[in-house]
Design a protein around this nucleic acid. Sequence first.
DNA 1: AATTAGTCCAACCGCGCGCAT
DNA 2: CATGCGCGCGGTTGGACTAAT
Length: 240
Amino acid sequence: MRNPCCEKQETNKGAWSKQEDEKLINYIRTHGEGRWRTLPQAAGLLRCGKSCRLRWINYLRPDLKRGKFTEDEEDLIIKLHALLGNRWSLIAGRLPGRTDNEIKNYWNSHLRRKLMDMGLDPNNHRLGNRFPNLTKRRPHSPPNAAGQGTRSMHVCAHCAPRPDHDASDDRVTDEASCLEDMNVRALPDLNLSLSIWPQLSSPAACTESTDHHVRRPPEAGELKRNIPDETSSPTLLLFR
DNA sequence: AATTAGTCCAACCGCGCGCAT
DNA sequence: CATGCGCGCGGTTGGACTAAT
């Protein structure tokens, strides 16, 4: 059992005050990002490290582009979601200045509905006629519903079991089948190519040739967030 | 004008991964 | 190899705000 992220000592919760923001900004300006666990004390903040990190990444970072999403951005989010599912951080990596949280919120409040209005199932981007009633606020979900706490990332597309893309299936978990489905059916104009990066652990377990694990090395600048090292983790790379 | 219903978004929570020890 | 820590991710929630009645 792990310790909670913040000891039970007194920490502020809820909305950040201007003073707290300033303290955080000043501290990161002089010391840089990282060491989130020790940052609050060092910066004189009564917040947990997680909270500081979130506040910085989602709100205070100077390179954030705030304001309405453009049509191009909307379009890209929809296409990337069709490909990647709810991997908001990966999607955010393709939208400079936007955060995963922002995109997630925008998806849930606007784009899901937009897709439904177009007659598409927002879960799998296929034409569908049976959607959950999303106008209902706060559908009560049991613990761990909708895959909370699970990670479907880093799954070799070929090794992964094929989801049936049932409308009741809340998550899209298979990039390859998404691409296949999407390119063929829903978004034929999307010019994305998909690569699964060398997988250190799984090829042995994969019964297929390992060829499908490797496409090509990334060009400089292609790797953005979440892709720390081309050999360390099997990660989706998108080239447009 | 008051009340209710719906929307939006910042923030929280729990969990898994990678790394150091 | 096992364990613990730090971090990042995705899902969920609280509450302010707005629109509808």
